[in-house]
């Protein structure tokens, strides 16, 4: 399997910036991983290698941390990441119908990336915006009070910016 890898220099820059910002101490590991994951979209193996070297943390620990937390991904994700909240408060106010509509429009299952690399769909636990459920998050944009028939229009906003 071939996956388009991110240029080594870009990875190094991202790690450098995060380590500089937080300091090379173990209590800053998760904030550093957060920044790198945010910059690169995921945590490539060479980024983990570099962080391991800089913080003097065993690679095993880095892998266990980066695979434990939901916000980290060790695999590349699509251009746009759609997060759907599957917790009870969103569920009881119509979350099921929104989920069905998402599956219908994106034509991928939970955890999958579309073949064209545009979309990744993930389910998540409560995002803390329950007052306006059902909630979906696309990249950094939060959508509340989502109705199933709005999904097409919401997704279209991201398709347009792509061109």
């Amino acid at each position: 399997m071939t996956i388009a890898t991110i240029d080594g220099k870009v990875v190094l820059e991202a790690v450098n910036k995060a380590v500089e910002e937080h300091g090379a101490t173990i209590d800053e590991l998760i904030p550093i991983l957060n920044d790198v994951n945010r910059t690169l979209g995921y945590l490539p193996a060479n980024a983990l290698d570099e962080i391991s070297r800089r913080l003097r943390v065993p690679k095993s620990q880095l892998f266990s941390v980066s695979s434990f937390y939901r916000m980290f991904s060790t695999k590349p994700r699509g251009k746009h990441v759609v997060q759907f909240c599957e917790s009870a408060p969103c569920h009881v106010v119509g979350g099921r119908q929104v989920w069905a509509s998402l599956l219908d429009h994106l034509k991928i299952g939970p955890g999958e990336t579309s073949p064209d690399g545009n979309w990744t769909l993930i389910t998540t636990s409560c995002l803390g915006v329950c007052g306006v459920g059902p909630v979906i998050i696309i990249d950094d944009d939060i959508y509340g009070n989502v109705a199933p028939d709005q999904i097409a229009e919401i997704l279209a906003r991201y398709s347009e910016t792509r061109e």
């Binding site: 209590d27 620990q61 266990s64 937390y69 939901r70 916000m71 636990s125």
Partner: peptide, 22 residues
């Protein structure tokens, strides 16, 4: 900052997380 794990609200898990562990 946390990184998406409900369990980190448990105080000892939270402490582990600050220490750079799962």
């Amino acid at each position: 900052s946390g990184a998406g794990a409900y369990i980190c609200g448990e105080e000892t898990a939270l402490i582990e997380s600050i220490e750079g562990k799962p």
